[in-house]
C-alpha cells in the first residue's frame, strides 16, 4: 500500500503534465509550439539508430573523455595542492579566477589552439570541468581529520597507502560534490562546443533543426537533451550512492545522534 502510494505520487504529476501538454497542444496551430503528438512522431522518426550513432554517440564519447580526463587531472592536482600548504596559498586565487570564468567563453580560445575537431571539444570540456573538481579536492584533502592523520601515522600507514586508504577516501564526499558540478558543466560545454563549430553531435543537430525551421524535430532534440541530462545525473547519483554508502550511513547516524 505504501509502495503503491509512493509510486502513485511520483507518477501523478508527470502524467498530468504530459497529458495536459498533449491535450492542450493538440489543436495548436502555433508554428513554434506544435502539438505534442507531432513532436513525438518527429522524435521517433528523427532519433533512429543510425542518427543516434552519427550524432549522439560522438557527443557522449567526447563528454565522457573530457569528464574523465578532467577528473584525473583535477583529483591529481587537487591532492598535490591540498597536501601542500604553501602551494595552496600561492595557487588559490589563480584557481578561483579560473573557476569564475564562465566555461563557454573558453570555446573561442580553445578553437584558436585546437581547431574545430574532436580535440577542441574534449579540451573545452576538460578545461571547463577541471576547476570545480580541483578546488573541491583541495578542500576535501585539506579538511582530512587530524585524528585520522595521526592514526595513520602512528600505525605506519604511509606512502601510497596513506593516499589511497586514508586521504582519498576521506576527501571522497567532497570530490564527489566537485564531480557532480563538473558533470553539469560538461553537458553544457558538450552542447555549446557543438553549436559553435561542428559537423555532428547533438548540439549541432538541434541547431540545424532550428535554423531550418524543423520545429517538431528541434523540440524532439531538446527533449532528447533533457533525457540525456537526466539519465547522466541519475547514473552519477547511483554511482555516488554506491561509492559513498559509508558516508550516507555515517551522516544518518550523526543526524540521529543530534
Amino acid at each position: 500500500m505504501d509502495v503503491l502510494k509512493k509510486i502513485g505520487s511520483a507518477v501523478a504529476l508527470p502524467v498530468l503534465l504530459f497529458a495536459g501538454w498533449f491535450l492542450l497542444s493538440d489543436g495548436s496551430a502555433s508554428f513554434y509550439a506544435p502539438p505534442l503528438r507531432q513532436i513525438l512522431t518527429a522524435f521517433a522518426d528523427t532519433w533512429q539508430p543510425e542518427r543516434l550513432r552519427a550524432d549522439v554517440a560522438p557527443s557522449l564519447l567526447r563528454l565522457l573523455a573530457g569528464f574523465l580526463v578532467a577528473a584525473l587531472i583535477g583529483v591529481g592536482l587537487g591532492v598535490a595542492v591540498g597536501l601542500n600548504r604553501r602551494l595552496r596559498a600561492v595557487l588559490e586565487p589563480v584557481l578561483e579566477f579560473f573557476r569564475a570564468i564562465p566555461p563557454p567563453v573558453l570555446v573561442p580560445v580553445i578553437m584558436l589552439f585546437a581547431g574545430i575537431g574532436d580535440g577542441m571539444k574534449v579540451i573545452v570540456i576538460v578545461f571547463g570541468c577541471v576547476w570545480p573538481i580541483l578546488l573541491n579536492t583541495v578542500e576535501g584533502v585539506r579538511a582530512v581529520d587530524s585524528v585520522v592523520l595521526d592514526t595513520a601515522r602512528a600505525y605506519g600507514v604511509t606512502g601510497p597507502a596513506r593516499l589511497t586508504r586514508v586521504i582519498l577516501p576521506s576527501a571522497s564526499p567532497q570530490i564527489a560534490a566537485g564531480l557532480r558540478q563538473a558533470l553539469s558543466i560538461a553537458i553544457i560545454l558538450m552542447v555549446i562546443s557543438e553549436m559553435f563549430a561542428s559537423s555532428n553531435g547533438l548540439g549541432f543537430a538541434v541547431v540545424q533543426f532550428q535554423r531550418s525551421f524543423a520545429i517538431p524535430e528541434m523540440w524532439s532534440g531538446i527533449i532528447l537533451l533533457g533525457l540525456l541530462g537526466f539519465a547522466l545525473s541519475l547514473v552519477f547519483r547511483l554511482a555516488e550512492r554506491w561509492a559513498l554508502r559509508w558516508y550516507e550511513g555515517l551522516r544518518a547516524t550523526r543526524r540521529r545522534a543530534g
Binding site: 581529520d145 585524528v147 585520522v148 595521526d150 592514526t151 601515522r153 602512528a154 600505525y155 605506519g156 586508504r165 586514508v166 577516501p169 576521506s170 571522497s172 559509508w246 558516508y247 555515517l250
Partner: peptide, 19 residues
C-alpha cells in the same frame, strides 16, 4: 612513530576510518 608501538586515541569516532 616507532614500529613496535600502538596508540589508542580518545576520539574513537574519528580514529577509526568510517569508510
Amino acid at each position: 612513530p616507532p614500529p613496535g608501538m600502538a596508540v589508542v586515541f580518545q576520539e574513537y569516532g574519528r580514529s577509526l576510518f568510517p569508510w
